[in-house]
Simulated scan of single mutants.
Amino acid sequence: MLLGLETDPARRFEALFRKRAARGAGDRQLPKFARHEAHVAAVLAAGGFWAFSERRVGKDGAAVCLPMIAPPKA
């Protein structure tokens, strides 16, 4: 009931998603091209990926936070 749906509609939506995923349709919300080798190569050729900065949390932890860090200039 994460989306606030009643149990029956939620079960129907989940069943539909699982059928689509089993057919190879996957999740439309996930960007397919972002995991594509040609996309990664193009981004790296253009200078690389931006990254989130990190801050230390406690002795051994880290938290992802802003600002974003630009890839190093070549």
Rank of each mutant, 00 (worst) to 15 (best):
K73I: 14
A70P: 09
G58S: 06
V57N: 01
C65K: 12
L2K: 11
A10G: 11
K19Y: 15
P67M: 02
A34F: 08
S53T: 12
L44Q: 03
R35F: 09
A25K: 11
D8H: 12
A34Y: 07
L3C: 09
G48Y: 07
A41V: 08
V40S: 05
A51Y: 07
A22I: 10
L16I: 14
A34D: 05
G26L: 05
D27K: 01
S53E: 06
G26D: 09
F52D: 02
K59W: 03
D8L: 14
A15W: 05
A22P: 04
A74Y: 14
G26Y: 03
P9D: 09
A38M: 07
L30P: 07
E14W: 08
E54M: 00
V43Q: 00
E37L: 01
W50M: 00
A38R: 04
P71V: 11
L16T: 15
M1C: 04
K73T: 15
I69H: 10
C65G: 12
A38K: 06
A63D: 13
A22K: 13
K19W: 14
M68I: 14
R35G: 09
F13N: 11
L2T: 13
R18G: 05
V64C: 10
A45W: 01
L3D: 13
G26S: 09
A21E: 10
R18D: 07
K73S: 15
G47Q: 03
R12V: 13
V40C: 00
R20T: 11
E6I: 04
G48S: 06
L44S: 02
D27P: 00
R28Y: 12
E6G: 12
F52P: 07
A70H: 09
E54C: 01
L44F: 03
A63E: 13
G26R: 04
R23W: 08
A45G: 06
A62G: 11
A62V: 11
D27I: 01
A45M: 01
H36Y: 05
V40Q: 05
R23M: 12
L44R: 05
L30Q: 11
R18K: 13
V40W: 00
A38T: 06
K19C: 12
A51Q: 09
A15R: 07
F49Y: 06
